[in-house]
Design a protein around this nucleic acid. Structure first.
Lengths: 224, 224
DNA sequence: CAATACCTTACATCAACTGTAAGTGTTTAT
DNA sequence: ATAAACACTTACAGTTGATGTAAGGTATTG
């Protein structure tokens, strides 16, 4: 069954939420510490996150934005802040739904299940800005165009997307793609960079892969 | 820009909705007759449908269910019926969001844009029951498993899914896949059926492709 | 039990992907 | 200005996976 992660600091509400989902048969986990919640959530790799806004430390808004840039599970915001501007802000950050407390358990369940169903179709996607990469098939979607990359091109783009907005060093790429940086001709990386750039060009993504002389490569993605 | 279709019988509200979306730069269309709205909507092929519930003739609920079985664009329900049971019913039918009138235009826009963004990633998918096929890459997703089919296998499955729940005749398949049914050895279809079945087996989809002796093949898909 | 329809496996051909090699272009430092 | 270092591009050949053909096996029907 699907894994749901509850990120809520009020202990009573948290237990109630866990109960609500557990009764429906979901495997539920929650945050044990709000010192570094990001890592804990990513490591848990849930199918859905239910997120409060008013948290100790990093706010739910920040967390939402941070997670959306890295992970591909849906985020449902559940908060007592019921103003329209909060809702608009959350949706703008990429939140997938926005419910206000108090919320009827049936509504919460129904909304959560809708998200799980929708995202069941889009598993294994990495999204950065307008760009989407399917890591099973290396299909790249951008605006209304798409192209299917070869295996090597796709693996390179995957590394670049995972490092974004940082650069990926030549060493990292050589190790990730060819197992070692020793005894591997750096030319193989250059050749495949050319190939990747050509493929991305074909759907209008010119100059997306930028060279950082002496260090590596970096993506330049226009924000949505 | 994205196409939005407004399905609302109250003429004043309809114009207001059209205006709201048009001002944001969307291409908006609406229903001209409620005699046979299904065909008109499908022909229009929008990126998003905004749907009222209380309509003359077929109700919005029925329409939602009918569309979800055939089309792949998101449906946002906008209605004056504000009970929880209405919302649960709509979400259960596959509606992607449920807003109640009166609704602030900014909220409507934000929710609509979120749906457009999410569904931008899932373009070119055929879904029947729990099964999803990406027609660009022929990736099949089922429950938590997936497999990428070869070109020929994928094209066969695509035809089978398009004909579902009817059968696809051998002639149809031969013509669609190899251009003609004359001078094409029927064995090539059998060979590739074996290959397709083997691939589907590998993710647990045993006996999904059924033979109808003397006629063709049919899918047996367990409903979600 | 024979005829028909369907299934399976092996094999050769073909196309796409990949790494190597060699040569060209660009940037940096002296 | 010029050489050295770094990066890019193109061509080529080996390898791999997909595809259609062929041949033989299995299942269903009357």
């Amino acid at each position: 069954m699907n894994k749901i992660m509850v990120i809520e600091d009020d202990i009573y509400l948290r237990e109630e939420l866990i109960n609500t989902f557990a009764k429906k048969g979901y495997s539920v986990s929650s945050i044990s510490s709000f010192d570094a919640p990001e890592k804990e959530i990513l490591n848990n790799n849930p199918d859905l996150a239910v997120l409060d806004i008013n948290l100790p430390g990093k706010s739910g808004f920040e967390l939402c934005k941070w997670l959306k840039a890295r992970a591909s599970f849906p985020i449902l915001i559940l908060t007592a802040r019921d103003t329209l501007s909060d809702e608009l802000y959350a949706l703008g950050l990429g939140a997938d739904d926005f419910l206000t407390k108090p919320c009827h358990p049936d509504r919460l369940i129904a909304r959560a299940e809708r998200l799980l169903q929708t995202y069941g179709k889009v598993r294994n996607l990495i999204q950065v800005g307008d760009l989407v990469l399917d890591i099973d098939t290396y299909k790249v979607i951008w605006k209304n165009a798409h192209v299917v990359l070869s295996d090597t091109e796709g693996r390179i783009l995957k590394v670049l997307l995972e490092r974004y907005p940082e650069l990926a060093s030549k060493q990292e790429l050589l190790i990730e793609l060819w197992g070692s940086e020793e005894y591997v001709d750096e030319n193989i990386l250059q050749v495949n960079m050319t190939r990747l750039r050509k493929s991305l060009d074909s759907i209008g993504l010119r100059d997306m892969v930028q060279t950082v002389r002496g260090q590596g490569y970096r993506l330049e993605v226009s924000k949505p």
